[in-house]
Design a protein around this nucleic acid. Structure first.
Lengths: 239, 239
DNA sequence: CGTCACCTTGATGGATATCAAAAACCGTGG
DNA sequence: CCACGGTTTTTGATATCCATCAAGGTGACG
């Protein structure tokens, strides 16, 4: 386990998240004051799909995966969340069960607010409300986009789109290309694209030969983002 | 074309929508005052995917379909919206291009707010903000749910789920069953389920023989909602 | 160096898209 | 009232694509 995180360091990172965006010094303090810091080792579940939304979380460091299991029992990875991202936002505000399960993909630190306390502050301060609205709005756009994309039947496109999403949500630029900072198995990608890992593996093999990606065991680097974007359908996923 | 709608009648219907929920008499008036009433004949496009979000709309009467075209050129019907539903909410508030196209499926009446004016009022009144947040939150939950469902590969489930959504969004209960109030082609359902209309047709044929639905040309009635729900995966789609 | 997890590749089958054509349905106009 | 044309729906034949099954390879780590 990592050493205990400094309160100050957490704060410095946390207030860069969208939830704190544009808040007054005073309000920032208030919001931070009612949060607790929680550490989650790799593979820890932060909350389960279907649970009552007792908390709202913000990732401070590390990486958290949101997965959903549907009626068929198929698991989908909805998205990955990293520093600054807010989890359980809709659920906490609307008091609906969490629609997905949040799991730490690597050792992570999160800020945690109890739903009632958070809601109290939310109702009192327009500025926080603004931020919440922005966060949820962005989430909605994301999901609408995905519903449209999922309708596509072309496999290459789906994989490319999933890979680009992955890169946006957890990638790090370097000279060679964009590397993904945590262990990605073929299975993970398959879940994101709604395919089997056999198909993903085959697709990646082809791309590797073409020099679009470089992949090894639990490791993945995008070498040619432009071409991948073209395969995914031309539009860039970046906002 | 229908005769001109009475202002009063529009108002009476409109204020039952989620956007007006719980507003004071005074605020209701203010909000209504800056809206304009617009009539849209069947097949009129209210706004196009990709357009700048100049307006926020609320359906007063009739029915509006939201469709999205993805990179592959495949069209998806995201949802149908009827009296009280708000369109273009996220787009207008966040000033992002409309993610989908809104088309009147039947002659409809909508309230229309210019985005800047609406935003002005939104920023001033917590109550409207609350409503907007609730509307967007609900929309998000819906979409998250759908992303999960789309991952399923079982066709019967997809069709059943699409049909139930349709029924929830545009169905009318009667003695026999739940009828869908406007012309539904197989193609429409196919778009909602992400399948071809051939497949949908075959599926419906089977169900018709089993007495689950009754369908004809552009007409569809659900006779046994329970069984359909079971096929869709057990969970009811109602909130 | 052996075990385990992950990855690759091949072979196969099944499900659904696609293509094709005919049937049912509806409104229209003779 | 009936014949006609267009649209929607059904049904069948075929092809394609991907999931599934199977087997072997590869790398990491004790």
């Amino acid at each position: 386990m990592k050493p205990l995180i400094e309160q100050e360091a957490v704060r410095a990172t946390a207030i860069q998240g969208a939830l704190f965006s544009g808040l007054s010094e005073d309000l920032t303090c208030q919001l931070f004051a009612i949060a607790t810091v929680r550490q989650a080792r790799m593979d820890t579940v932060l909350f389960h799909q279907g649970d009552a939304p007792s908390h709202l979380l913000q990732v401070v460091s590390g990486l958290v995966r949101m997965t959903q299991i549907n009626a068929e029992g198929a698991q989908t990875t909805l998205r990955l969340m990293r520093s600054g991202d807010v989890l359980g936002c809709v659920a906490a505000i609307q008091q609906f069960p969490y629609p997905a399960t949040a799991t730490a993909v690597e050792d992570s630190v999160v800020l945690s607010w109890r739903a009632p306390q958070f809601l109290g502050l939310l109702k009192q301060h327009q500025a926080i409300m603004d931020n919440a609205l922005a966060i949820i709005g962005t989430r909605t756009r994301d999901m609408v986009q995905r519903v449209g994309d999922m309708a596509g039947r072309n496999v290459e496109r789906r994989v490319a789109a999933a890979l680009l999403r992955l890169v946006d949500q957890a990638g790090t630029e370097s000279e060679e290309g964009i590397a993904i900072q945590f262990p990605v198995t073929r299975d993970d990608l398959a879940e994101m694209a709604g395919l089997t890992y056999f198909t993903v593996s085959r697709t990646l093999s082809v791309w590797q030969k073409q020099g679009l990606v470089s992949s090894g065991r639990q490791r993945l680097t995008v070498l040619d983002r432009t071409k991948l974007t073209a395969i995914a359908g031309g539009r860039s996923r970046r906002e």
